[in-house]
């Protein structure tokens, strides 16, 4: 039989969502006391932990320092237990290195690095459980951690993975959809200004569909930003009540 039916004629996806609906997003900020900032975020069954240190002095080779802004150092890893088959190498493989680089580029676009010349900001993200959209979940978790660390940003960076199937854009793909032959695209957005921090796509897609897909991704990112905003506000409220 032909694989899975990703979108039924009634408009439901494999897990019961409609095309534009996101998975359930749940998050907590400040989960670690030692770090400068931290956050835990679940987007459906994909779960990520982000930890931020800095800004602090450059460690290691001083020559890397930039005189007009801070450098951002990102490290992405996956827990060995995060996928159905145990992972042999949690970080340092080609995929993780690429992902680290993408995260770095994303946050260089969002963080006001010029405020901290000659310093460094470290962002560590670990996927604890993987069910599709790893990059997006990492970005969203890291955003919360950066905010928790009190590092100023232009705006939230929100990311979402979208796919295209049967002339329809699907928002926030899960693993079954990502592996089911959908051309997927990951996009990170600064929602208020509508600036795109990063677009990443490996699959082939006809040019005619690109605009609709990016449009769908931006809408989804805006949806994510609303949820993150709520999490931050709630966190602030809790924090202020504690202090009183």
């Amino acid at each position: 039989m032909a694989g899975l039916e990703l979108l039924s004629d009634q408009g439901y996806r494999l897990d019961g969502r409609k095309a534009t609906e996101l998975r359930k997003v749940q998050a907590r900020m400040g989960v670690f006391a030692q770090a400068d900032g931290s956050a835990y975020l679940e987007q459906g069954n994909t779960k990520a932990l982000a930890v931020v240190y800095g800004p602090h002095e450059i460690r290691g080779a001083r020559s890397r320092a930039l005189h007009d802004r801070a450098i951002i150092n990102c490290q992405y890893s996956m827990a060995t237990f995060s996928t159905a088959e145990r992972k042999r190498r949690p970080h340092g493989d080609r995929k993780s290195t690429e992902m680290s680089l993408h995260l770095k580029q994303t946050f260089e676009a969002a963080v006001l690095t010029q405020l901290y010349p000659r310093s460094q900001i470290d962002i560590y993200v670990k996927i604890l459980q993987s069910d599709g959209g790893n990059y997006s979940v990492c970005v969203n978790a890291a955003t919360l951690a950066v905010i928790d660390a009190g590092i100023p940003m232009r705006d939230y960076v929100c990311a979402c993975t979208v796919g295209f199937v049967d002339e329809t854009s699907l928002a926030d793909l899960c693993y079954a959809e990502e592996s089911g032959g959908v051309s997927s695209l990951a996009l990170a957005l600064l929602p208020r200004g509508g600036q795109i921090a990063l677009v990443q796509m490996d699959a082939r897609l006809h040019q005619d569909h690109l605009d609709t897909l990016i449009e769908a991704a931006m809408t989804a990112c805006k949806g994510v930003s609303k949820v993150l905003d709520q999490v931050v506000r709630q966190h602030l409220q809790e924090g202020s009540t504690l202090r009183e």
């Binding site: 897990d15 019961g16 996101l22 998975r23 459906g44 069954n45 159905a84 069910d131 899960c174 949806g223």
Partner: peptide
């Protein structure tokens, strides 16, 4: 967005792999 929907996990064991999928109601 999905507030009204409760959410259960459906576990399917196929071969040796355990696949966990979300299932929205």
């Amino acid at each position: 967005m999905l507030k009204s929907k409760t959410f259960v996990k459906k576990t399917r064991a196929g071969g040796v792999m355990k696949i966990v999928r979300e299932h929205y109601l």
